[in-house]
């Protein structure tokens, strides 16, 4: 008997509802399904939690308040009062990434954030917004982010080149970190979990004990770690969005 332990199989996109329009493949895929579940899940929960607001909040309202205050706290810590208009944006990004990551932790569920297409869309949108807001609020002064203060003139041209490279690497870094973490975590989980049946089949009696006593605790540990990473990546994405927005609001501090 062959155990299916192909670690990449879980990332395959399959068409659930084939749609084709104007020569483009716009099919409703499993990825789209889980994005939709995440989005409507968040909207549904928050609508439910805020439908019956009370001075002394109930369970759902408390959770929604903690959730919102956590994100608002991040934005306030980084951007202070200038950040207020961006709380909804950061809240949306954080919530979507967090819920999409956590949905991916269910067995047989698809992890939407393990695909570059999803993470890069968010990263490019974030950096695009930084450029738009920076130019809109500061005009040409926005270019100051490329010229750090206190650098002697004879080396400034070089520093500017480095800063431009650094700026261009931001969306890549932002999108890649999220996608790579989710991908790597799920692959590691699948491979280690795959050891258990492989051992059990390969070594009739000892293998069962080895798999159960040595590998299973490891898999449990990695699962716990993955829950941490799922939260952490949403948190990092939110923080860095704030930090980059801070650059747009105050270029060349």
């Amino acid at each position: 008997m062959m155990v299916s332990t192909d670690p990449m199989h879980q990332f395959q996109i399959s068409r659930l509802l084939p749609i084709e329009a104007g020569g483009y493949d716009l099919s409703f895929t499993n990825s789209a399904l889980f994005i939709a579940i995440a989005v409507f899940g968040i909207i549904g929960f928050l609508a439910f939690a805020t439908s019956n607001l009370q001075t002394i909040p109930g369970r759902a309202q408390s959770l929604a308040e903690i959730w919102y205050k956590f994100v608002a706290g991040i934005v306030h810590d980084v951007n202070h009062d200038d950040g207020k208009p961006f709380i909804p944006l950061v809240f949306t990004l954080f919530s979507f990434i967090l819920i999409a990551n956590l949905l991916g932790m269910f067995p047989y569920f698809f992890t939407a954030t393990s695909h570059v297409a999803v993470t890069f869309t968010m990263a490019l949108f974030t950096i695009g917004l930084v450029v738009v807001i920076g130019v809109w609020k500061n005009g040409f002064k926005f270019l100051k982010i490329f010229t750090p203060s206190g650098v002697p003139l004879y080396i400034l041209w070089f520093v500017v080149i480095i800063e431009i490279f650094s700026f261009l690497s931001r969306p890549l870094s932002l999108g890649m970190r999220l996608f790579a973490n989710m991908l790597a975590g799920h692959v590691a989980l699948k491979i280690f979990a795959g050891f258990i049946p492989t051992l059990a089949i390969g070594l009739p009696v000892i293998g069962v004990f080895m798999g159960g006593l040595l590998v299973l605790p490891l898999v449990v540990g990695i699962t716990a770690l993955e829950f941490l990473v799922a939260f952490l990546q949403a948190y990092v994405f939110a923080i860095l969005t704030c930090v980059y927005l801070n650059d747009a609001l105050h270029p060349g501090h």
Binding site: V78, I145, P148, E163, V236, I239, V243, D247, G252, H253
Partner: peptide, 14 residues
């Protein structure tokens, strides 16, 4: 520190 982690433009780029 993760908060405020990235350069606040001026100081640490300097």
């Amino acid at each position: 520190g993760l908060r405020n982690m990235a350069p606040k433009s001026g100081q640490d780029k300097g």
